[in-house]
Amino acid sequence: MSAGTPPAALAAPAPAQAEWPLWEVFVRPKAGLDHKHCGSLHAADAAMAVQLARDVYTRRQEGVSLWVVRSSDITASDPGDKGMYFDPMADKVYRHPTFYELPVAVDHM
C-alpha cells in the first residue's frame, strides 16, 4: 500500500449519484495577511463553493477574502519523500544569517 492510498476496505463501490466535487478553501483573515488553508467542502461549481465557504468557514468575521480551488487541481509534494526532499536544509547553515559572526560594532545587519 503506498502512502496516502485508502485501504481497500474503505474504497466502497461508487455511489449511484455523483457527489459534488471537493474544493479546498483558503481564507485571508484581514487585509495584509496571506490566504491560509482552512478546510474543504463539496460544491457543484466554483460560485457555489465560494458561497458555501462563506457560510461554513467565515460565520464570525474570520475573513475578508476567500479562495476556492478544486482539490483535484492541487499537486502536492510526496509525503514519502519528506526526508530527502526537505532535510538538506539542515546542513546548509550558511543560508542562515546567524552563521556569520560579525564584530559587535556592526550592530544590526
Binding site: 485508502p6 474503505l10 457527489e19 478546510g39 474543504s40 461554513v56
Partner: peptide
C-alpha cells in the same frame, strides 16, 4: 453552527479515504 461543525468533521473524515456519500 451545528451544521458547520458537521461539515468540518465530515471533511476531516474524508481526508482518511472515506467519502461523504459512504
Amino acid at each position: 453552527d451545528e451544521a458547520g461543525h458537521g461539515l468540518y468533521l465530515y471533511a476531516a473524515a474524508e481526508t482518511l479515504g472515506t467519502s461523504r456519500d459512504q
